[in-house]
Design a binder for these strands. Structure first.
Length: 586
RNA sequence: CGGGCUGUGGCGCAGCUUGGUUAGCGCGCUUGUCUGGGGGACAAGAGGUCGUGGGUUCAAAUCCCGCCAGCCCGACCA
């Protein structure tokens, strides 16, 4: 039994000034956590209980799907990460340290290498596979900017698992098993989630999905269909299929457009001097050609131009996800100087293309559909062309998903409008394939006695982040209100009488009764604390069932309050324990 | 890493502009009395390197510079 008179906790009457998002504010205020370091939190007894309950659910479901729990060190030697080049590639987010001998170490941000090498160490033939291993481990990432309390720390608890299979079909099954287990886990946690398609980046062809909890404080933006179940990370979202433009367009004409280096000025100028007969010109009639510089992994640079409708911005993250592993940035001054054919503000596709004299690749966003007509630059200062038709007057070297996605864009599956939402990544499932196994030489003998490279998946759940996400979803103006599956206790007994009187005795007896029925009980047995304070604390702490033993005892009743339903029911003392048990199981 | 704001007892804040008593208020904490169904009252207390290092000055919480930390926005985030 937890006694509030003894419990190591202090609730705060006011919000801590450094906490902004609800989960951070309430977890600190209700005495679950305290900040200990930049991006690091101390778990106080209440918080630690919630974390352990979440962890237990994750563990149960992982075990149930046949994964085996192991535990690696968080402190890892550099050389292993050298072999996969992640010592370098992981960049500044890797926590690095040096021991007394000057040897380099790191604090594990994720453990692909260690698991791969351990499997290589123990297993060597196909009957050993498949195998899925997992751990629940403290992870470290040297985030440039920890924020939002537990939602984005530098030290956090994560369940990471890895599957090892002999072939693609096996990997697919391991992946699906994990995906199913994740769905069960998040359902049990009562954490709403959306599974979104994620970019697999350089691993081309591999499958990756993220589990996002749709909460405002989240830092991921995703797209979901208002009609079907399509959802995707904005980087991975595909443009809905658009009809080609089959309307006949007038022949191309050049117009002199002095000082029209921007889309807005161009549209204004055209409406004033070259009005359309049918409707005013708009930014969406213009073709904007954005010049980007790609930096390839070998260090070489390439200039490319991407054509998008003038009313849209280019989303560099989406572009980067598609040209990965190359990195993308806008072309700088020196870059323009090296390409005299690119007349800034007046760039048009007529002179572009890999086969052109300039030799610059020209890519089009799918929103620039075949047959559509555009106003665009004439590649001479102060001159634009009208009615330049895609396919008739210019061509491209390929398509690229480049524009920022907007609410209302058509769903790639059902063409109904999509919406944009915010979420936090609480899980990620990833078919790694043979990337790590290749680099670390994880091979086993197959049935024919041949060495084959093992294919892998990696799967993560942010356990501490899940706690924060649950707090983010389940709260109101009074405080937290935990789902029963993860609450720090099942029932919170509030004693409003003075010590040693009948009320106290009845409350203590009820608490013991509840405990003997298998419930975890938190009792507010503090003496000399007014009822108002106790009620406020109970609501703030957020245990889903609150039983008040107080003045209604005179009528033989206690009050059973349901924090979620907001109900307050008088129940005879003798029936209270049963009623609470029923509520807790309901 | 860039921009903005901030750092004063456990928590929330005032004081800083214009340097000068013993650094103040509310909450919380301790003791006592009262009170006892919505953060109650009265009284007496404890608790402070004013983030930190340097500088200016007879004198710095206050002015100047560096650093550290926090929050927000952006960049970053397999």
């Amino acid at each position: 039994m937890l006694r509030l008179s003894q419990l190591f906790v202090r609730t705060l009457r006011e919000d801590p000034s450094d906490a902004e998002v609800p989960s951070h504010r309430l977890l600190v205020r209700a005495g679950y956590i305290r900040r200990a370091a930049p991006g690091g939190y101390t778990w106080l007894p209440l918080g630690w209980r919630v974390l352990r309950r979440v962890e237990a659910i994750v563990r149960e479901e992982m075990d149930a799907m046949g994964a085996q729990e192991v535990h690696f060190p968080a402190l890892l030697p550099r050389d292993v990460y050298e072999q996969t080049n992640r010592w370098n590639e992981y960049g500044d987010n890797l926590f690095r340290l040096v021991d007394r001998k000057g040897a380099d170490y790191l604090l594990g941000p994720t453990h692909e290498e260690m698991f791969t090498l351990r499997v290589k160490d123990l297993y060597s033939s196909y009957p050993d596979l498949p195998v899925s291993l997992y751990q629940i481990q403290t992870k470290y990432r040297d985030e440039a900017r920890p924020r939002a309390g537990l939602l984005r720390g530098r030290e956090f608890l994560m369940k990471d698992s890895y599957s090892f299979d002999i072939d693609g079909a096996g990997l697919k099954k391991s992946y699906d098993d994990h995906r199913d287990a994740y769905e069960r886990i998040f359902r049990r946690l009562h954490l709403p989630y959306v599974i979104v398609k994620a970019m697999s980046g350089a691993m081309g062809g591999s499958v990756s999905e993220e589990f996002l909890a749709p909460i405002e404080a989240g830092e991921d933006t995703f797209v979901r269909c208002t009609s079907c179940d399509y959802a995707a990370n904005t980087e991975a979202v595909a443009t809905g299929s658009l009809e080609p433009d089959s309307v006949g367009h007038p022949a191309t004409t050049e117009v002199v457009t002095p000082g029209c280096g921007t889309i807005a000025s161009l549209v204004d100028f055209l409406n004033a001097n070259n009005p359309r007969p049918d409707r005013p010109w708009g930014a969406s009639d213009t073709l904007k050609n954005v010049v980007l510089s790609l930096r390839h992994p070998d260090g070489s640079r390439e200039t490319v131009v991407i054509g998008v409708p003038g009313d849209r911005e280019v989303d560099l993250k989406r572009v980067e996800a598609q040209v990965s592993p190359a990195e993308v940035e806008p072309l700088d001054e020196a870059g323009f100087a090296a390409h005299p054919r690119l007349v800034r503000g007046y760039i048009g596709p007529q002179v572009l293309g890999a086969a052109s004299a300039a030799g610059i690749r020209y890519l089009l966003d799918p929103n620039v559909v075949p047959g559509s007509a555009w106003v665009t630059g004439a590649n001479r200062a102060d001159t634009h062309v009208l009615h330049l038709v895609n396919g008739r007057d210019f061509s491209c070297d390929g398509e690229i998903e480049a524009v920022e996605v907007r609410a209302g864009d058509p769903c790639p599956v059902c063409s109904r409008p999509v919406e944009i939402a915010r979420g936090i990544e609480i899980g990620h499932v990833f078919q790694l394939g043979r990337l790590y196994a290749d680099k670390l030489g994880l091979q086993v003998l197959d049935q024919n006695g041949k060495q084959v490279t093992v294919t892998m998946g990696s799967y993560g759940i942010g356990v501490s982040r899940a706690v924060a996400s649950i707090a983010e979803v389940f709260n109101d103006e009074l405080g937290l209100k935990w789902p029963r599956a993860v609450a720090p206790a099942d029932v919170h007994v509030v004693v409003t009488g003075k010590n040693d009187d009948a009320i106290t005795q009845a409350a203590e007896a009820l608490a013991r009764d509840l405990e003997s029925r298998g419930l975890e009980v938190l009792i507010d047995d503090r003496n000399g604390v007014s009822p108002g304070v106790k009620f406020k604390d109970a609501e703030l702490i957020g245990i889903p069932t609150i039983v008040v033993v107080g003045k209604s005892l005179a009528d033989g009743n206690v009050e059973v309050r349901d924090r979620h339903a907001g109900t307050n029911t008088a129940v005879a003392v003798g029936e209270a324990a049963e009623a609470v048990v029923a509520l807790s199981r309901g």
